[in-house]
């Protein structure tokens, strides 16, 4: 068994239009990979297809989590298998507090009748919140309801910390964040880095990668990975622009 999130020749799209044209990517457990790409290159489609968004159809290839295919599984099954997606636009759930939502999510991972103990749960929750430097009053607010952009992203990272996934995909986590919020979120992600977690950071800008320094950078153009390299590739991209890679592809 290979401990990695593997995407093999993935073809997928929406409404009959193919967006991913045979994408290959492997994120070994314990590593942080980044995908950089322009708007419309298919970055968010990749995130949604992996998570099982029902609007998207897969027409070829495979996605494997530690050697097992996850295509065809319901989104909640994929999540319980250990895949986490930090949303670019997280949904609001009025009337449901973060604390209750997280508790329900954790209970969904346990056998029926063996719900998590309340004291144990809050201990764990507060520990994670301290780690991420999040104020305790935060979790009594309804999920994302009236949250600022920064609060929404902080909430995503807190959930990631609580659910302890095997692989996490962060979809444009930096979008809509000012520099202070970005630093808090990056601090959260960095404190969760470790041998048990593989992370895929999807971003448009190099900026985020100053704070979450990746092991490998991939450049995505038109539904394919066209170039991969060490973290310095991100800086080169920033300097030379996307045209540079596109020209490479054309050549």
């Amino acid at each position: 068994m290979k401990c990695a999130l593997e995407i093999k020749g993935l073809k997928a799209g929406i409404g009959g239009t193919e967006i991913l044209h045979g994408l290959n990517l492997t994120i070994p457990k314990g590593e942080v990979h980044a995908i950089m790409g322009k708007n419309g290159s298919g970055k968010s489609t990749l995130a949604k297809v992996m998570a099982g968004h029902p609007d998207y159809e897969v027409t070829g290839g495979d996605v494997l989590l530690d050697g097992k295919t996850i295509l065809g599984l319901e989104p909640d099954v994929r999540a319980r298998e250990g895949l986490f997606l930090a949303f670019q636009y997280p949904s609001e759930i009025p009337g449901v507090t973060i604390a209750n939502f997280m508790r329900a999510a954790l209970n969904a991972r346990r056998p029926e009748g063996q719900e998590i103990d309340a004291v144990e749960y809050y201990n764990e929750l507060y520990k994670k919140m301290d780690l991420l430097k999040i104020d305790r009053a935060f979790t009594s607010r309804a999920v994302n309801d009236g949250f600022s952009g920064g609060e929404k992203k902080k909430n995503e990272i807190l959930q990631m910390a609580m659910l302890e996934p095997k692989y996490a995909v962060l979809d444009e986590t930096d979008s809509g964040l000012d520099i202070d919020a970005l630093k808090i979120v990056a601090h959260g992600v960095n404190s969760l880095r470790g041998p048990k977690l593989g992370i895929l950071v999807i971003t448009h800008y190099q900026r985020l990668l100053d704070y979450i320094v990746p092991d490998v950078v991939h450049v995505m153009v038109d539904g394919r990975i066209v170039k991969s390299g060490p973290k310095e590739l991100a800086l080169e991209m920033e300097k030379k622009g996307y045209d540079w890679v596109e020209n490479l592809v054309a050549a």
Partner: peptide, 18 residues
């Protein structure tokens, strides 16, 4: 909203119920 909750591991029914 349902997809978001399902991505956290809740079944569709649990998500609606919540």
């Amino acid at each position: 909203q349902i997809f978001y909750m399902q991505q956290r591991g809740l079944s569709e029914g649990q998500a609606m119920s919540l």
